[in-house]
């Protein structure tokens, strides 16, 4: 991975930029403050917590919970709140990170220079994406202590933390690939970032709104199942993936499957519905990979071919040998 010069340079530049430190501080500050506010106003917020629990996780069970049971579930709710916050923060950070990745190179006219070297568009795009992933990885790792504090209360296992960490990484990869596509396609950083926000917002909110507001549009009216395309849109929805993860952790998988049954064309016993989390993650990784490949199309200088690397490496190795021999002499 470190053989990729673009990745090396990006990581080096990111490390020097105050943006990374500010992102990490900001990210953790928001999580810590939210957790603090949640715990500080725990007593006052109990009715609200009951409402959230009923709405999202335990349905009718929350109203009959004792205060102790509610307290136990509230900690789990805090964990979910932090995970959702993490997702929202990533949702806002990733487009700003990726928007200028290719477009910024174009604006500074450094892209042309890279394209007149042996770097292929694929190397450039993957280098950029991996650099973004490294940044996200650092941010996510930095949040582990805060999430671990919730873990102290015993509501969640280490496995839960690993699972949420993995889901966040995959979702970031997916969101990043969309940002990178716009950065490669649109020549300027700011419009590329704005377009990424609009598309991501549409991707997360639109399918959920459509099924509520205009079910006819997605073909699910009158008891008919929704179209396959709508199911795919739901699979691509990173917000739904995160909600699915949390529902599973709360043991509310059945309610999630019934939600899928009522909104998509899937039956409750279909493998996709039963393994929604894995399926959606796999689907998002595949789509992300295809989007990255599509991004490389926008970087192709016309004369370049993929086989160029092999030809030049052969030539360089023969030259290296000659030069080293010259030097020895």
């Amino acid at each position: 991975m470190q053989k990729n010069p673009v990745l090396k340079r990006e990581v080096r530049a990111n490390m020097r930029s105050p943006k990374l430190i500010l992102s990490i501080i900001g990210f953790n500050l928001v999580l810590a403050l939210s957790g603090f506010i949640f715990l500080a106003f725990f007593e006052e917020a109990q009715p609200l917590e009951r409402l959230f629990l009923e709405l999202f996780f335990q349905e009718n069970a929350a109203s009959s919970m004792s205060d102790n049971e509610l307290a136990y579930n509230s900690i789990r709710l805090l964990y979910c709140l932090l995970i959702m916050l993490e997702f929202v923060l990533l949702f806002f950070i990733i487009p700003t990170l990726t928007g200028s990745m290719i477009a910024g190179e174009r604006e500074h006219q450094t892209l042309d220079l890279m394209l007149t070297t042996q770097l292929t568009p694929k190397t450039i795009v993957f280098g950029k994406l991996l650099a973004m992933m490294k940044t996200i990885l650092m941010i996510l790792i930095s949040t582990l202590p805060i999430l671990s504090l919730v873990n102290v209360f015993g509501s969640f296992s280490v496995f839960d933390m690993i699972a949420s960490f993995g889901v966040m990484l995959v979702v970031s990869f997916f969101l990043g690939s969309i940002g990178l596509l716009f950065s490669a396609w649109i020549k300027r950083s700011v419009p590329a970032t704005l377009c990424t926000y609009i598309v991501l917002l549409g991707l997360c909110i639109l399918p959920l709104m459509l099924v509520r507001l205009t079910p006819e549009l997605i073909g699910s009216s009158g008891g008919r199942p929704a179209t396959f395309a709508y199911t795919l849109a739901m699979l691509m929805n990173p917000l739904l993936t995160v909600v699915c993860l949390l529902k599973m952790r709360f043991g509310a998988e059945a309610s999630f499957i019934s939600y899928l049954e009522s909104t998509t064309h899937l039956a409750s016993d279909s493998p996709i519905a039963r393994h929604w989390l894995i399926m959606s993650l796999l689907f998002q990784v595949t789509v992300a990979y295809l989007l990255v490949l599509l991004s490389t199309k926008y970087l192709q200088p016309r004369y370049r071919r993929r086989e160029m690397n092999g030809a030049i490496k052969e030539r360089m190795s023969s030259e290296t040998e000659t030069e080293t021999e010259d030097e020895k002499e």
Partner: peptide
Amino acid sequence: PAEIYHYIGYVPDSFGLYENLLVREYMTFF
């Protein structure tokens, strides 16, 4: 094209520099 890139060096009409790198790092990258 593979051979051609070996024979040419190109300096565009703008600097095309990474200003947050050291001279050595900039050259190493390229």
